[in-house]
Simulated assay, not measured.
Amino acid sequence: MKRILVIKITSLGDMAHTLPLIWDLRHAYPEAKIDWVADASCADIPRWTVGVDRVISPPLRGYKKSKQWKDLRAILAAVRELRREKYDVVLDVHGVYKSAIVGWLARTRRRFGYAAKHLGEARAEMFYTDIFAPHGDATARHKMRLVCAKALGYELDPKEHYELRIPAPAAPLNTDGVPRAMLFHATSLEIKKWPPERWIAVGRELTARGYRVQLPWGSPAEKEQSEVLARGIPDAEVLPKMTITECAQRVAAADLVIGTDTGFVHLAHALGKPSVMLFTATSREHFGISEPGRAVSIGNEGVVPDVPEVIGAIDQVTGRVGSPAAV
């Protein structure tokens, strides 16, 4: 095996989900080059991933929104970059038309993808030469690992491994010795949000324990919500508008991360940060994070966690009640 192409195009959380698969491939085929196709809006995590040779990042989302010629030119350039190399195998672990077409454009004789019943767009199956084996009720992360191991015939390590190298910030962060807790309250869907009054209650408890709460945001509406929460949490900090890299650097510097089922909380887990993920509308079993003493998910689809549950989860990942010294 000389060169492998992995296709996972969006979104930020799915990029983090794919990291254990990259580790598996790198250790099963240490001499192979591994390329990754990801949308330009989500390509930072692939670029930070240890063991990825090339990241091919067409601005598919950008072109869909703008229909600008510059984005179309960038997509065509990405296709040329894709076709520069021949691949022993292409692994489409995304499973929609756009990812299947990317695989079809690649120079390869073997293109693996999910069976139609598991695809977001069933007819994408026509672009594959081989179909992944059934994966049962595996989690989002384990599903990718399982089907690729079965397809290529290598042994799967029971443990999930993550290896990232995030660029260092221009100046050191959090140099005052006060531990930071980042609260990722924003999410793409209204039904995935947790009530503001509960965020404030958790923020107040964290402040009482000696943390300084940091509130990130990505849009004017999210900034407004961060400001509402900050007014209820003593000494809370509404962070400035950040790039994905700048936010990732803040996550890497944090002592605790709490948030909904969203990309940066999955990134926090991948970075080994004490993390609590809150579920209200999606499946905790399928998308959640779990590692004893470090990461825990609470709530579930249709089951909204209350404040005591979140505080209990914080106690689990920080190792003690009260002082954050054990974080």
Rank of each mutant, 00 (worst) to 15 (best):
V317M: 14
G322W: 10
A149C: 10
R145M: 10
Q225I: 02
M1C: 02
T18P: 07
L271D: 06
A168W: 12
R204C: 07
P59L: 09
A151D: 08
G293C: 05
R165S: 15
P30L: 06
P220L: 04
V52N: 05
E125L: 00
A221E: 15
A325D: 14
P158L: 03
G259K: 09
G95K: 00
E125D: 04
G322T: 03
L267Q: 03
P220V: 01
Y154T: 00
K193A: 10
L25F: 08
V52R: 01
V202R: 05
W194R: 05
W199G: 08
G218I: 01
E155Y: 02
V147Q: 06
R198A: 12
I166Q: 10
G288C: 04
P20A: 01
M144W: 07
L156E: 11
A230N: 08
P134K: 00
T207V: 11
P59Q: 09
I200T: 02
P20N: 01
E224D: 15
E85K: 00
I166L: 15
S11M: 03
P305R: 00
G272E: 11
E31I: 00
K117D: 15
P324V: 04
T18C: 13
F132D: 07
T108F: 07
T10A: 13
R212M: 11
E31W: 03
R180T: 02
A236Q: 05
E121F: 06
V213D: 05
V202W: 10
A138R: 12
M144N: 14
I34R: 02
M182Y: 09
L173Y: 06
R250Q: 14
D137M: 04
V303N: 10
G272R: 03
P292S: 13
Q68I: 00
R80L: 12
L239Y: 06
I311L: 15
E81S: 09
L152S: 05
K2A: 08
W23P: 04
R110D: 13
S66Y: 02
E163L: 05
V93Q: 12
E155Q: 11
V96Q: 12
A106N: 03
I56M: 12
D176H: 05
K64I: 07
A170S: 13
I233N: 09
K33D: 14
R3C: 12
A151L: 03
M242W: 01
Q214I: 02
L229P: 11
G136A: 01
M126N: 06
S41C: 04
E301C: 06
R84L: 04
R165N: 15
V90F: 03
V310Y: 04
K2H: 12
K8P: 04
S99A: 12
R3Q: 14
R107K: 13
V303R: 13
L19N: 11
I7D: 14
M144T: 04
L105V: 02
H94C: 02
R84N: 08
Y114P: 12
P308R: 00
E227C: 00
T282H: 07
V93M: 10
D315E: 15
S226Y: 10
T282S: 15
M126C: 09
L267E: 07
A16E: 13
I75Y: 13
C42S: 05
N300L: 08
I166E: 14
L146M: 08
A116T: 07
